[in-house]
Design a protein around this nucleic acid. Structure first.
Length: 851
RNA sequence: GGGCAAUUAGCUCAGCUGGUUAGAGCGCUUCGUUUACACCGAAGAUGUCGGGGGUUCGAAUCCCUCAUUGCCCACCA
């Protein structure tokens, strides 16, 4: 015997874990092999296996919405989860942990450090997987992929070799962004610039005075550059000058280079090709000697004499001090503002150094990517990011793909360590191949790792190749949904790699979400202590509440504010839905077996029409990636229409099949957004088989005219009820009596009375009392005093309508309007005019009767 | 220096290709022991849609311009 009963309030913790397990165990998360539509695939951006999930990950809820929606639509649907070893980021995090015990990675050594970081990330990975479950994400766990899985690494290696064979990979000694703390080079995009004030030293160099913020690099100066058009220095170009320096006299050649701004400083610049990117370029142009004076350890080297071994900052002070002492300092500007690069992961100041690295040529690789985007093979949501991505790609320079960190995927290169020069300088391949080529002990393995983004840039195909789904129609994937902040770092690179490796775009649509900020739109940060932990919130308010809070009111590409109060609001909404279900379940007779909903009353027709419209609206909105609007539409149907009106109406005239139908429909279309509460309710409904997660998405139909006519009658009832309530509230009337001349309204007397909390609804030949001003003529029985009291209200009502009518008439009198505006719009204006005229006549009549 | 976005109710934000008298949630005021829900219900107040100009029959929506805020990119001896 069904016990159609639910707890008084929805308690998420009671259901979530069980429901999730049931979904997972039933295989619902796997693509349905029987589904016949096109496959729908999303590869989840793999969270970094080095900590807890945060709100950025919780934003993947939009992926779950798409996935659940497509699954219900009957597509073979795959949401593939994974985790990222996140090279340098994880390394830095684990090093911080080590630092708490006063240790560094150098104490452990490379091998031990790797092993411990592996354990650290494995632990985090499992923790993270639990958290993904907690968010209700319907990912196919059987296809979980880690970036360090053998199959992924194999694909990454294969791609590297293919790129190398195509001549897109080279090894080069060039200036790079060096992080002295990580002891690794980084790509330009991993350097974040911060504005700061530093002293600008004007130092004397023979006949020159020149400005620099880095006097400590002067030992690496190999020229002085001036603008060739600068009259002051023109004659010196090409000459070599003698200058007194801290370590004795030196000679420097003077070169002319258009890069020099005559307005800056003294118009002359010291050129240090080894330690400044611009100077490096100048050096290339003028074939200057590259003299390194700072090592990869961030310390000055033996070329600097007594400064050798000093860290850069210390050396700078010392050199400046000594220059002053020796009379070689002209003056110092203490208020010079400029921006300085810092490593975005560890925050250490970047030291430009010349170090040998592996590079990827991008000039050819980016072309197909640009083409694909321009041709619309990849669409961006929101659209404005199309141009942003294109601009970035078009200006992209060769990419340094090697990292000297210890945590990552080793570049599969072995160098010739034998004296046999007929053998290749290096090979790309396995150790066995190295042995074959160079003999046992005749080779040296590369120790550099790949940039994390080199491997994750291959994620869409690397994952599907690892799971064996690549050939099964899941590639190209459907949507790449990720944070706006990694558009360049990740998305553009996936496009390049995807097109190179598979000749196909990796995804058809890129959906970018913005940043989740605190409730006042401020960035969340530890120092401000305004952060929200999504996992704490799911525990406190339920996962559905958090999901809705991250969906509704948040638009693609834009930042979205989230406060605890917002989550609380959606917790309330879930509870509202729960109670609606609880009420309806209580209405079912024993052994109720649902039948086709047939409208018997205007209210029935009205709610059926509203439900049908909402299904259409939600479906369209999801298809258009307007998830906020989709969620809002269901929210409003449930609360504003179903709960506030229809359920109340059903307490007078009940149509159980319609209650059942509307509840089922709401729960179904809300499921992608709030999967738990909807599934819990579904399970309690009689006559439902299987799980909601795999139930078929409803289809909106073209509503028959008769349904619309009937529905309009309920709108009339609503209007009278609302007007009555307003008057009753303002005049403190209890149980007012409603009079009407309208047959239909009189027919619905019980309904109107209940909804309006009226004493009675009476049909009369002629109205009297307080006129309600609704299209269906109705009055509230009232004495002369009360009517007189409300006279001003009628008058202002009349004035308002008159103004409005005037506007409409002016509009319709305008030929330009009636000619140019679409016929439907004009017709609507005409209808409105007639309506307003009728109302106005009634109000005027009422006022006349008042005398 | 280049670019993008935002500016709408006290707060946080919707408003898709221009077309009802501009919306939601929260907050606020008043009232409320109704056959589910106080995590509730009813009623209500609050807007020169940042300023100025323009296009149009019609502009929150399109164009120009200014202002403020945020973000991205580049450069910075």
């Amino acid at each position: 015997m069904p016990s159609y009963e639910l707890d008084k309030a929805y308690s998420p913790s009671k259901y979530e874990a069980d429901l999730y397990k049931r979904w997972e165990d039933s295989g619902a998360f796997k693509p349905d092999p029987k589904a016949t539509k096109d496959p729908f695939t999303i590869i989840m951006p793999p969270p970094n296996a080095n900590g807890d999930l945060h709100l950025g990950h919780a934003m993947f809820v939009v992926e779950d919405i798409m996935i659940r929606y497509r699954r219900m639509q009957g597509h073979p649907t795959l949401w593939l989860p994974g985790a990222d070893h996140a090279g340098i980021e994880t390394q830095v995090m684990y090093e911080r942990q080590l630092a708490k015990d006063g240790r560094s990675r150098f104490d452990l050594g490379r091998e031990e450090f790797y092993k411990q970081t592996w354990d650290f990330s494995q632990k985090n990975m499992h923790n993270m997987m639990d958290q993904v479950r907690q968010l209700g994400f319907s990912v196919d766990w059987s296809r979980f992929v880690f970036t360090l899985d053998d199959k992924v690494v194999a694909t990454v290696y294969e791609t590297f070799k293919q790129l190398h064979d195509a001549d897109y990979i080279y090894r080069g000694n060039r200036i790079v962004n060096w992080c002295p703390s990580c002891r690794s080079a980084f790509a330009d995009i991993e350097v974040k610039y911060r504005e700061q004030i530093d002293p600008l030293y004007y130092i004397k160099y023979g006949p020159f005075v020149l400005a620099t913020v880095r006097p400590e690099t002067k030992f690496g100066d190999t020229a002085i550059a001036v603008n060739p058009k600068d009259e002051r220095y023109k004659d010196l170009i090409g000459k070599t000058i003698d200058a007194e320096d801290l370590n004795g006299p030196i000679k420097l050649q003077v070169i002319g280079d258009a890069h020099i701004d005559p307005e800056f400083g003294t118009g002359a610049m010291k050129v240090t090709p080894a330690h400044d990117p611009n100077d490096w370029e100048i050096g290339l142009r003028h074939n200057l000697e590259v003299r390194a004076v700072i090592g990869t350890d961030g310390l000055l080297n033996e070329r600097t004499g007594k400064y050798a071994g000093m860290p850069v900052a210390e050396a700078r002070e010392q050199v400046a001090h000594d220059l002053e002492e020796r009379g070689l300092m002209d003056h110092i500007d203490m208020n010079y503002t400029h921006s300085v690069g810092y490593h975005d992961r560890c925050g250490t100041q970047i030291e430009p150094l010349v170090v040998e690295q592996w590079w990827m040529k991008v000039d050819e690789l980016k072309k197909p990517a640009i083409k694909a985007i321009k041709e619309g093979q990849i669409k961006f949501v929101p659209e404005r990011f199309t141009k942003v991505a294109l601009d970035w790609l078009e200006n992209l320079h060769d990419w340094n793909i090697s990292r000297q960190n210890w945590w990552g995927i080793r570049i599969p290169v072995y160098y010739n360590n034998t004296s046999d020069e007929s053998k290749p300088e290096y090979i790309i391949g396995t150790e066995e191949e190295a042995i074959k080529t160079y003999g046992q002990g005749g080779y040296e393995a590369e120790t550099d790792n790949f940039d994390t983004w080199f491997s994750s840039g291959q994620w869409p195909f690397a994952t599907l190749m690892a799971t064996g789904d690549f050939e099964k129609g899941f590639y190209p994937t459907s949507v790449m949904e990720t944070g706006r902040d990694i558009l360049f770092l990740w998305v553009t690179r996936m496009i390049m790699f995807g097109l190179f490796k598979t000749k196909k775009v990796p995804f058809r649509t890129v959906y970018l979400h913005g940043l989740v900020t605190d409730e006042h739109g401020k960035k969340m940060s530890k120092s401000k202590n305004n952060g929200i932990n999504p996992l704490e919130m799911t525990a406190k308010y339920g996962t559905d509440a958090v999901r809705l809070a991250l969906t509704i009111g948040i638009t693609p590409g834009n930042d979205g504010a989230l406060g605890e109060r917002k989550i609380e609001g959606y917790r309330n909404f879930c509870n509202k839905l729960w109670n609606v279900a609880r009420f309806i379940l209580g209405q079912f007779p024993e052994n109720y077996s649902p039948a086709r909903p047939v409208p018997q009353s205007p209210a029935d027709a009205w709610i059926l029409a509203r439900t049908n419209d909402t299904v259409r609206e939600v479906t369209k909105a999801i298809e258009d990636y307007r998830f906020s609007e989709a969620g809002q539409a269901v929210y409003s149907l449930l609360w504003d229409d179903f709960a506030d009106w229809y359920i109340e109406a059903s307490k007078v005239e009940q149509n159980t099949n319609i209650l059942y139908h509307v509840l089922s429909t709401i729960v179904t279309v809300l499921h992608p957004f709030a999967p738990f509460v909807t599934e819990a309710i579904w399970n309690a409904l009689p006559g439902k088989e299987g799980q909601l997660i795999t139930t078929v998405w409803p289809q909106a139909v073209k509503a028959p005219a008769e349904l619309k006519t009937q529905a309009a009658k309920f709108e009339d009832v609503k209007a009278v009820v609302q007007a009555t309530r307003a008057v009753a509230a303002e005049e403190q009337l209890s149980k007012p009596v409603i009079l009407t001349t309208n047959q239909q309204l009189a027919d619905s007397a019980d309904l109107v009375a209940r909804l309006a909390r009226a004493g009675a609804v009476k049909q009369v030949g002629e109205g009297s009392g307080l006129y309600l001003g609704t299209t269906v003529a109705a009055w509230i029985e009232a004495n002369a005093q009360l009517v007189a009291n409300r006279r001003h209200r009628l008058e202002s009502q009349r004035d308002e309508k008159q103004t409005y009518l005037k506007g409409l008439e002016a509009k319709l009198a305008n030929e330009n309007y009636t000619k140019n505006a679409p016929a439907a719009v004009v017709q609507e204006t005409r209808d409105r005019r007639e309506e307003t005229k009728t109302l106005l006549a009634k109000i005027t009549e009422q006022l006349t009767n008042l005398g």
